[in-house]
């Protein structure tokens, strides 16, 4: 089943929750969906007979780098608005087709539904996305930092992240 058919099927089933399909990206088409409907949609994607996306290959947080940069009077910058995205790359082992799903959420209060109950492999990927971007995955069983120390402050992969000077009293850039 190709991306077009999957998109139409989802659109038929979920209506407005499916936002758009971008297919002019160089490689694979990406379907955008509503962030707070992910769980429901994912369940359908996994269980529907014609889809059977039983494997979540990858879950990746991305900073879309579209925030508005405001240069303050003292030449520091602050960012306003913008979005963070989560990409889901799904694969169906029995039917051998794949699809990419994208959700975008606003950067000030990024909230997405967790899909850990659908694909267990999402667990650590979601923790990593939380660790790096601060995206909150609702209903995640244990949303804590994974790669960074548990008491680290800030979300390192956000584009507006600034390196802290000290960590627990240690100077960071030596």
């Amino acid at each position: 089943m190709n991306a077009e058919e999957i998109y139409n099927l989802l659109k038929e089933k979920f209506g407005d929750a499916i936002l758009e399909m971008v297919s002019d990206v160089p490689t694979e088409p990406i379907i955008s969906v509503e962030p707070l409907k992910t769980n429901e949609i994912s369940e359908f994607l996994r269980d529907a007979d014609e889809l059977q996306f039983d494997s979540l290959m990858n879950l990746s947080g991305v900073d879309d780098n579209n925030a508005e940069k405001i240069i303050n009077e003292d030449e520091t910058t602050t960012t306003k608005g913008g979005t963070l995205s989560v990409f889901y790359h799904l694969d169906s082992i029995p039917l051998k087709h794949k699809i990419a799903i994208k959700i975008s959420t606003n950067r000030d209060n990024p909230e997405v539904e967790s899909v850990t109950n659908i694909w267990a492999s999402a667990n650590w990927h979601e923790r990593e996305a939380f660790d790096m971007y601060g995206i909150k995955f609702l209903n995640h069983p244990d949303l804590s930092r994974i790669l960074m120390p548990y008491d680290w402050e800030g979300f390192p992969l956000r584009k507006d992240y600034e390196n802290p000077e000290f960590y627990e009293g240690m100077k960071i850039p030596y």
Binding site: S60, D63, S121, H125, L157
Partner: peptide
């Protein structure tokens, strides 16, 4: 802008 690596060991260890 973003390079995300889906490392096989990362997922294996989570299991």
């Amino acid at each position: 802008t973003r390079v995300k690596v889906r490392a096989p060991s990362f997922v294996s260890l989570s299991a």
